[in-house]
Design a protein around this nucleic acid. Structure first.
Lengths: 332, 332
DNA sequence: TTGTACGCGTTATCAT
DNA sequence: ATGATAACGCGTACAA
């Protein structure tokens, strides 16, 4: 692969002139510049990124670490990040932590080592990534979940409020034995949804039914088992608040197997809207989170932080809203 | 951010010893090594990636460029790539080209400039990324779609065969006016699915109905309009072969709006299985592509190519298989 | 306007 | 076993 000196030799100029001509920085004789560009094109010259980054001490690529690429919520967020980043001349690379603290940590290490311009991370909540980040003082913003320990820029949604509203909606619809399937203990989004659910029951003067709560990973499989488990009880729930998109699929599979129809036989509300949610029969009620906007907000925060503008940590909290559909209507 | 010389100073040794101790390469006095590690830890030292890559002339990160992060097909593929890559000590970063040749090109440029160890790309089919890649001689493998022009390593699925089988299945089920909504002309996967569809009709001695074919981007919106357009004809199709996952959503939305029930009123088969396809009412018949396996195969090819093993370009072709469900059953 | 020369942080070679 | 030093490819201050 040809270097800047190859180009210089071919164009009969110094490497400094090549650099200037190609970066359009200082003023260069138009004719020389043309010769340089021609030489570069003929050689298929591409500047060596590592060398350039080393010299410039900066990059124009952002790292976005998410916990599940297959989750539409995170991909929508990624779109938001990308749109803002691209407009500002940055590129974005995605890393998939798989909700595994070790993988998250590995990607954080890479981002730090490669001296990425900035890092957006939707933390698993466990693990020590936060420490690494804090120690390096790299520009970071946490999305969806706060970074434990360090008070950095953060973009959240008020999941507790949304969960509470969802629970109250189920009560209003006439359900009275409301269960909840949410993520692992310690994961902030999982915890806050559970708290909101409980607050909703309390507000409706319904007894807190600890035995109607199940916790598992934010995946279909665990939710599938949890749903079977709950529904096969002697006193099964008559409604379910579901922690996310992927879990909803597991629950729906379980109910389909048992021939239980959502809405009439069991009320259902799941976190995260998805393109297919409205296509189900009955359509699935959801708590829609502003994923795209979370992405744009996070990217903006990060860009400002990179710019070195403010120094105080900021937290942006967006709100989710309930989209009631027939799966939470007992008369549907 | 501290450098290797900071660590060296703190440990009272030379930078060379620090490098050796931290990389465990050459043999170092255990006591000294411990002192070095301690110093590094205290300083929160992280090796400078660009400097290291510059010196080593190599990276351990792979770039995977896909056209749609929100498409489960591509994310499943990404999982396959990641699993194989991680096992071999490589990391993977995802880039979202959005099916936009310019974005694809931009990410290819980045990957090449950053001297990524290897590149996996699912090309838009348009644009000149292939030329750049070929010129640089970077390790590349194309997934899902071939890289136009250059005969490099490629992982494909036999979409023509699968489309033909799908069309024939629809015929067997009793449908006779079968339409097709597929991707843009020039996109290989779109073209081959159309070709297979036509072959299926021919094999069944059904007239090729050019006016029942619609082409648009591989997205929901275009497919939504195409479906409305087709169904509102005087002589509408009685079945539809749909180009992919996202398009299926658009078609289903259109049909739901018009109150047309899949299966009984219009046969439906879509490319790409998705977790929600079986949950629909009626469940959606799909052509399931081995996305995960495509990812692992591609990653293996790439790793071998990076290793410098073979020199001849290889093409791996996997096969898709039809999963008939009720949406292609007129009696359901 | 153009060229010379140094340094970015690391690893590898060569002495010691 | 350890240290001094060159080199990776680039951008830029300084000199011409």
């Amino acid at each position: 692969m040809s270097t800047i000196s190859d180009v210089a030799a071919r164009a009969g100029v110094s490497t400094a002139t090549v650099s200037r001509a190609l970066n359009g920085k200082s003023t260069v004789d138009p004719q020389l510049a043309a010769r340089v560009r021609a030489a570069a094109a003929e050689l298929g010259y591409r500047p060596n990124g590592p060398a350039r980054n080393l010299r410039r001490q900066e990059t124009v690529v952002l790292t976005l670490i998410i916990s599940d690429v297959a989750n539409p919520f995170f991909t929508a967020m990624a779109r938001g990040v990308e749109d803002v980043a691209h407009a500002a001349g940055y590129s974005v690379v995605l890393c998939n932590s798989d909700d595994d603290p070790a993988k998250e940590r590995a990607y954080v290490d890479i981002a730090v080592q490669e001296r990425m311009a900035g890092i957006l991370v939707s933390p698993t909540g466990r693990g020590d990534s936060a420490g690494v980040l804090a120690a390096q003082g790299a520009p970071v913003v946490a999305v969806d979940r706060p970074l434990p320990g360090t008070p950095g820029d953060t973009v959240l949604v008020d999941g507790a409020l949304a969960a509470r509203q969802a629970a109250e909606h189920l009560v209003q619809q006439g359900y009275s034995r409301i269960g909840c399937i949410t993520g692992p203990s310690g994961v902030p989004t999982a915890d806050e949804r559970l708290a909101g659910y409980r607050a909703g029951l309390r507000a409706a003067r319904l007894p807190a039914a600890a035995d109607l709560v199940r916790r598992c990973e934010f995946r279909a499989q665990g939710a599938y088992r949890a749903a079977l488990d709950l529904v096969n009880r002697d006193d099964p729930p008559d409604a379910l608040l579901i922690g996310n998109n992927a879990m909803a699929i597991g629950v729906l599979e379980a109910l389909a197997e048992l021939g239980i129809r959502p809405g009439r036989e069991i009320g259902l509300i799941a976190f995260d809207d998805a393109p297919w949610a409205a296509l189900l029969d009955p359509p699935l009620s959801v708590v829609s989170q502003p994923a795209y906007d979370m992405g744009t907000a996070a990217a903006q925060l990060l860009l400002e932080r990179i710019g070195g503008a403010s120094t105080a940590a900021r937290t942006v909290t967006l709100s989710a809203h309930l989209i009631p559909r027939a799966s939470s209507d007992p008369h549907a």
